[in-house]
Design a protein around this nucleic acid. Structure first.
Lengths: 216, 216
DNA sequence: ATAAAAATAGTACAATTGTACTAGGCCACC
DNA sequence: GGTGGCCTAGTACAATTGTACTATTTTTAT
């Protein structure tokens, strides 16, 4: 029976180190390494490729989405399991399109994580209720003629920059001053983000920022 | 050398189970039990008291603050360590007043957690940078004549109810309809919350809701 | 080289939120 | 039997956000 190498990236040290322990206790896991953020994970992987990379969606330095994008481009043979706190389906669909192999909520049982690891290696994808719900929602929305909840949850660098400032409780005017931009420009970036994400007020933006790990 | 009993409450199963592993690996920890939320923790403790209870601040069913309040009232001999993701100082000061024994960010090293466990038992309190920063900020704010960042971060039931709806992206009008309240009443609850928490717009409210575990 | 995407900036108006007050009823606690 | 906290509701106005467009320039990718 083959044994596997697993890397994990998560910014919460306590969780990450505890997870390393847990992963080492899995029968078919041979080696575990950990990284504090996406950047560090990519550096690790540059030198030695694991069978599976477990990536937290919420990370400050290089968030999960960006990490996965790079990972898939540079090392398509590495299977990716996303860990997320919130079942933010806006994001999940987008990442499925990117080619991520599994999605798990942080409140799954350790057993399920173990199953998921073996599944992504051997069957290339791990199906669970979370994924099923997102897929179903996407299908029913298309069918009923509604436009799906979002176009693409990928924000540009400028948009993220502005989103961060929104989350720091700055007004449009203040953001404009800080970035030396017209208020109108900032306002436009806001509406573009709201469009992309599929929300229609600031609350939606802030929630997205939290759920996507763009803030805190 | 005496060995200790530790209970932990956290709604993220994966984290919690991994933490149980970790705690068991500490030399002077004899027994570990875990609970999914504050309510469950209190039930556990009703039958048998641990030396230390580790409580996640962010929990949906019964949040960390409420859990600690009850815990201190009913079992003052149990030492409490709060785990939090964000260094939300608004909350920490309030909980220090309540009598919580330690605060740790979720990105501390396992070693520090171990030290903290022994410290709260033997010295009744564990000091670290997080706590020091909050205390200093509180002092300097009082000195400079500013009113402290918040009065009390304790929201009433009604306020929490409204905050949850705000976080669901409802407008004041919609909330009023849903709860059969005047728009003005809802508006007043909003400003009262903003006052208590020490913010001046919706963004601040939503962030607080996340950081206090009132939503997701 | 050219098309697409991103960033910039604008106008004009509607809707919502935020500020600053007053005020009555209810309930619990001392 | 008063005091204070909580919930309710109000008025009136200021500030900010949200909607709906058009349009030019810059950057990026094929």
């Amino acid at each position: 029976m083959k044994k596997y190498k697993v890397y994990i990236a998560d910014d919460h040290t306590l969780f990450r180190k505890a997870m390393v322990n847990l992963l080492r206790s899995f029968h078919r896991v041979l080696e575990v390494k950990d990284a504090e953020n996406g950047k560090e994970l990519l550096t690790l992987i540059k030198y030695e490729q694991p069978d599976v990379a477990i990536v937290d969606l919420q990370m400050p330095v290089m968030d999960g989405a960006e990490t996965c994008e790079q990972l898939i481009k540079k090392h398509p043979e590495v299977k990716i399991i996303i860990l997320t706190m919130h079942d933010s389906n806006k994001y999940i669909l987008h990442m499925m399109e990117m080619g991520v192999h599994a999605f798990l909520l942080k409140n799954t049982e350790p057993d399920e994580l173990e199953k998921a690891i073996y599944a992504v290696i051997e069957k290339d994808f791990y199906h669970n209720d979370l994924v099923a719900a997102v897929l179903r929602k996407n299908v029913t929305e298309r069918k009923s003629g509604q436009r799906p909840q979002f176009r693409s949850a990928e924000l540009t660098e400028r948009e993220k920059e502005i989103l961060v400032l929104i989350c720091r409780e700055l007004t449009i005017r203040e953001i404009g001053q800080k970035l030396s931009l017209s208020e109108n420009t900032v306002r436009n970036h806001r509406v573009n983000m709201m469009d992309k994400i599929g929300v229609n007020n600031t609350v939606g933006l802030v929630k997205f920022a939290y759920e996507a790990g763009i803030v805190s």
